[in-house]
Design a protein around this nucleic acid. Sequence first.
DNA 1: GTAAGACCTGACGCTAACGTCAGATGCAAG
DNA 2: CTTGCATCTGACGTTAGCGTCAGGTCTTAC
Lengths: 115, 115
Amino acid sequence: MRIGELASRAGVSVRALRYYEEQGLLESERTPGGQRDYPDTAVERVRFFQSMYAAGLSSRRIADMLSCFDNGTTNAQQRAMLAEERVRIDARIAELMGARGRLEELIVAASDRAG
Amino acid sequence: MRIGELASRAGVSVRALRYYEEQGLLESERTPGGQRDYPDTAVERVRFFQSMYAAGLSSRRIADMLSCFDNGTTNAQQRAMLAEERVRIDARIAELMGARGRLEELIVAASDRAG
DNA sequence: GTAAGACCTGACGCTAACGTCAGATGCAAG
DNA sequence: CTTGCATCTGACGTTAGCGTCAGGTCTTAC
């Protein structure tokens, strides 16, 4: 498929896809006219990127774990990195839950005042 | 206390405190010499900021809910905003847990391969 | 009174994941 | 063949929460 279709199917912008390619995350064939051509599997791949970005990983980090995503094998360094990122995500979740609690306090206190 | 002490007690940089003042989040008295002087309550206040920043709120958003933090009262707009931010945080937590799950899959798959 | 820090006000730098614009080309339809 | 939309390659713009440097002032210990 071409870039526009991939963008809409994966829920990202065309610009984002070109950026992923720049970062070495996403390859593509080219048509004789020079346009990018993606396989169907690219949709899932891009969604994986989005998920990792949403979790706060950098392009570099995602690139480092790509072989792991592609064929399910890892070296020691990758295993350490995966575990490290999991810890980081857990910490982020804890922060967010803390903030949620603070917000909740404000809401409860305010509703008490409001009756 | 002066700015350096507040910074170390709240766990942020001196620059950050001046930035919070710029954004209208943090007031201070001034000594005759022109240096900032903070009350003890500023420590907790700054920690609240950090928690909100960590949850992805902008300075503007935090400023908008400050009166709520200060005296526990809200107007309708603030109540709506607090609820909205809570929803946003919940969504972020869900994203993170999704990403965590994906990572977990990679880890499990890789450990299967590794034996 | 002076040396050493802490603090002051600008003001530019930084980062990362894109947004956006410009000017040119590819491609399917009528 | 041309109309018109999708796509192409640069390349500069954006955003937000600070980092950092420059040059000058305040405070405190000796």
